[in-house]
Design a binder for these strands. Sequence first.
DNA 1: AGCCTCTTGTGAACTGATGCACAAGGTGTC
DNA 2: GACACCTTGTGCATCAGTTCACAAGAGGCT
Lengths: 215, 215
Amino acid sequence: MAPLGRIPEATVARLPLYLRGLDAFPVGVTATVSSDELADLAGVNAAKVRKDLSHLGTYGTRGVGYDVTFLRFQISQALGVANVWPVVVCGMGNLGRALANHTGFTDRGFPVVAATDSDPNKIGTIVDGVSVHAPGELGDIVRRLDVAIGVISTPAEAAQGTADALVAAGVTSIMSFAPTVLSAPDEVEIRSVDLATELQILGFHLHRNRIAGDA
Amino acid sequence: MAPLGRIPEATVARLPLYLRGLDAFPVGVTATVSSDELADLAGVNAAKVRKDLSHLGTYGTRGVGYDVTFLRFQISQALGVANVWPVVVCGMGNLGRALANHTGFTDRGFPVVAATDSDPNKIGTIVDGVSVHAPGELGDIVRRLDVAIGVISTPAEAAQGTADALVAAGVTSIMSFAPTVLSAPDEVEIRSVDLATELQILGFHLHRNRIAGDA
DNA sequence: AGCCTCTTGTGAACTGATGCACAAGGTGTC
DNA sequence: GACACCTTGTGCATCAGTTCACAAGAGGCT
């Protein structure tokens, strides 16, 4: 009912999953999908699907479901996936290289257009088609290549400095893999992915189950 | 007050951050930290810190703060970080290799003890000190090396099959990077990290701001 | 000892998200 | 056209998590 009201954060986080779920349907073919089916495809429950989609103002057809093509369009629209957001990868260690080479990024509108690294041996080289620059050139790179998103895959010690440089260059969206807290102005959106932390959460549950099992 | 009651999931997810924050203090030195300071170090607010720690039954000292050494011990205890949980990495593409080589894992008690890949050219080789096996050997590897956690970094198509194999081998904790929904029995804990999805969420905010800015 | 300052621990209000359950509104059949 | 059958959209109850605000307690100063 709310055509374009504020979309809850939790819903935003699920929209990409729905879009991904719709990949199960061939493009160009007319088909419909029920909230039940889509729930399965996205790994959530049907009520959530319906409520989420209602926030988009997307109307399904009662008794039938959602038109796949139209739904795809609606979600894409809401997420702005028509846009292409150039990405710079800061820190070309193991992880940085993997990210720069990750086809899933370019495919979805996030081309890695440049990289930085502090290692003089890497600066000036081209790794997997991405040219590596000195950290000091960040501002220049961002302006020249119209970078929208910065990925931080440096060691923890260099992360804050890198974030500062990105912010100074005008980047307002950062994805960080560094195991540290980053501070930045409020208008900068930071998503932090700490792999070791994720494992520790798994470890907690293993630990808990082991204790329970020992009883 | 609740010495060892059920710890809320949201709290569990923050405990590793606190532990990481405490790294700012040298080991072995007596020091105290206030909820305010720790909040800064972990990137959350003080009220949350206090409530979270109260779930552990950890008592700070009013007017003073928390004893760093004791707090470290308490959190470690709760998370079970004293345990070592061997990890197997399934899928040695770019990302898999980066993960297998990630020092942050071994450092925190998650050694990568083996890997699998379906590429015959990789099977039998040793990449960055980790030996690569055929997917069919998974069950054997898990049993032999006492693997506790499986990391799925295969292409999306192979992810479900890999998850099934891990579950069949008795693994109950899975971290997946494959952009797909995995199904598994309820007792299996799955944490899914989809990098493209993360970027799409950032993209949403960029898109929204751009629209707002155009007004 | 008494008082002042500091910081914890927590009750309570609030916020956001989830899930249920069902009326509303379509489609297709007889 | 009427009826039976679906599936959406949503009001409402519930739940988890967050934040506030303050009493309780600990330390130190005079």
